[in-house]
Design a protein around this nucleic acid. Structure first.
Lengths: 111, 111
DNA sequence: CAGAATCCACGGTGATACTG
DNA sequence: CAGTATCACCGTGGATTCTG
């Protein structure tokens, strides 16, 4: 926690309405297909799922394996680099669990 | 890291272009005035600073002390509840420091 | 000094339809 | 199945001006 603020890099990685949820599921299941992620996150659109997965891939947090079959099959897995995010995610979840009562999810709206 | 995803509560707390930076400075200095925060975060507008401070106050992460003097003086401090965020912030900063090299801050833009 | 009040631009998100 | 492609919305953030 020295001089400059470096936290934004992780936060940017996890910011986006669904990004941490996607990561959460991939961490739990080790490997998931596109359709499996859709089922686990019912309200997400294909577009958002694709977009966020591409961002993760670009940041080398997950890897994308394509099985050239019919019908297509694509699997997403954490990279070794992505696994380094696990401690952070766990810390976030612990905090979330403990304080779920106090923070009722409402973002403050200026009157 | 059980069943439901609770991480979003912390993330919402810290999401917003400047929120974690503000919190970072308040954590370091224990107590800061409005104008001091402005100096520490040169590019922020008063509006954004005010907005985010109000959100923190509403979430009981910081407290706002008004000294009824002329000119006005307002000090912001972490609440006990806010101090519980320190471990998280430190984790985020550690990660940020270690991976500053790899993540060059660019958010992926779909081509 | 520490804000409140507007007005406005932009980008993230969503809905829908189409494709290899 | 696993995506693209478009279009439209709306909330966050920015610039500016005014106030106690």
């Amino acid at each position: 926690m020295s001089i400059p603020c470096k936290a934004n890099e992780v936060l940017e990685l996890l910011t986006g309405k669904w990004k941490h949820i996607i990561l959460y599921h991939i961490m739990e299941h080790e490997t998931l297909r596109f359709s499996e992620l859709q089922k686990l996150i019912p309200n997400i659109t294909k577009k958002m799922l694709t977009t966020h997965l591409r961002e993760f891939e670009h940041n080398q947090i997950i890897s994308r394996k394509i099985y050239p079959s019919v019908p297509p099959k694509v699997e997403y897995t954490l990279t070794d680099y992505g696994k380094e995010l696990k401690p952070i995610m766990e810390t976030l979840h612990e905090w979330g669990d403990q304080h779920a009562k106090r923070d009722n999810g409402d973002r403050y709206i200026v009157p």
